[in-house]
Simulated scan of single mutants.
Amino acid sequence: MKRIMVTGSLGQIGSELVAQLRTLKGVDNVLATDIRCPEHNPVVAEGLFEVLDVLNRERMLYLARDFQADTLIHLASLLSSVAEDRPQEAWHINMGGLVNALEVSRELQLTCFTPSSIGAFGPETPKVGTPQDCIQRPRTMYGITKVAGELLCDYYHTKYGVDTRGVRFPGLISHETLPGGGTTDYAVEIFYDAVKSGHYTCPLGADTALDMMYMPDAIAAIIQLLEADESRLVHRNAFNVSAMSFTPEDIKQAIQQVMPQFTMDYRINPKLQQIADSWPDSIDCACARDEWAFSPKYDLLAMTREMLQRLQEKREQEDTAALQEPHLV
């Protein structure tokens, strides 16, 4: 992995992954792309950036070839909650973009990484200790595209020899980027509201257990898998990865250890609750540990302390900047 092109670079994962790759591999060795181009965004302003609609295969091919990429990290997709509101568009973007990424990888002989999700599981999947290989019958369009994507990546590896790699991400929690329409977004929103107002209204039931991961661990997992010895990879695509499993009540109590005054009530969103109830409570990550030494660093309390500290620092910086702005009389 020397020359890396990333699609969906302005999303929750892409924003932090691009920054880390630029640090590790050098600014000139990472090409970030996205369908939009906000000029003041660090991903756009601090390195190589090109506008790319992932449904435009010819432009994707041109950019990858011109950049002389050896690795394509394909992140562009619609997430679970948004995909349920726009299912036809979700299929078009999630599958069309992935086919293009795989075709470009086949033609240029690139390593291709794309993330799957715990959304690829369904109600018939074992909910506790969900194994790497088990029944997958999701009932959401997002989950359907993820299962199809896993199979497609396997197909391109066995049929064409493309070096495809991927993980099944749980909910991802970040202080850098706001959530983008996922069912697990509550686990990010709760920290923002805790710092802003000291209170959060949760859209999921108190005992809804879901797998989660702090973004630094997720970024490390992507890089670690891409740099893993190919000969050790038995599964190759869609490795189960997770760092913790918790309920809304668990995260409330973790926040209260740092902010005793924090309060939370519930206003359940039926659509989100239905999606969450179809997903595992906890997944088994043994294959990722055995095949490429996956080992997350953050548990719930460590993540909670860092999230609250970083968001409080961010809020103080914003308040200071607002006070320093000139005011017209």
Rank of each mutant, 00 (worst) to 15 (best):
P115D: 09
P115W: 05
S116F: 07
S117R: 10
S117Y: 05
I118C: 09
I118S: 13
G119A: 15
A120L: 10
G122T: 07
G122N: 11
P123Q: 06
E124Y: 02
E124I: 01
T125M: 08
P126M: 11
P126A: 11
P126C: 10
K127R: 15
K127L: 08
V128L: 13
V128H: 13
T130F: 07
T130Q: 09
T130W: 06
T130I: 01
T130C: 15
P131A: 04
Q132W: 11
Q132N: 09
Q132V: 03
D133S: 10
C134A: 08
I135Y: 02
I135L: 14
R137D: 13
R139F: 00
R139C: 11
R139L: 13
M141Q: 11
M141D: 00
M141H: 01
Y142A: 06
G143K: 07
G143I: 04
I144W: 02
I144S: 09
T145H: 08
K146S: 08
K146Y: 08
V147E: 08
V147Q: 10
A148K: 10
A148F: 15
A148I: 14
G149D: 04
G149T: 01
G149C: 09
E150C: 02
E150I: 12
E150P: 01
L151F: 09
L151S: 08
L152I: 10
C153A: 15
C153I: 00
Y155N: 06
Y155A: 09
Y156V: 06
Y156G: 05
H157L: 11
T158G: 03
T158D: 12
K159R: 15
Y160G: 06
D163L: 03
D163Y: 01
D163Q: 07
R165I: 02
G166C: 09
G166R: 08
V167P: 08
R168F: 03
R168Q: 08
F169L: 13
F169Y: 12
P170C: 14
L172M: 13
I173W: 02
I173K: 01
S174Q: 07
S174D: 12
S174C: 11
S174V: 04
E176I: 03
E176N: 12
E176F: 05
E176D: 07
T177W: 08
L178C: 04
L178G: 05
P179L: 05
G180M: 12
G180Q: 12
G180E: 14
G181W: 01
G181H: 02
G182Y: 00
G182T: 09
G182W: 00
T183L: 04
T184P: 04
T184D: 07
Y186A: 10
Y186E: 15
Y186I: 04
A187N: 06
A187P: 02
A187G: 05
V188D: 14
E189S: 04
I190D: 06
F191I: 04
F191P: 01
F191A: 01
Y192T: 13
Y192A: 09
D193K: 14
D193H: 07
D193C: 00
V195P: 05
K196T: 10
S197R: 14
S197I: 13
S197D: 13
G198T: 12
G198Q: 10
H199L: 07
H199R: 15
Y200E: 01
T201R: 14
T201P: 01
C202H: 02
P203C: 05
P203I: 07
L204T: 06
L204H: 03
G205L: 05
D207W: 02
D207S: 11
A209I: 03
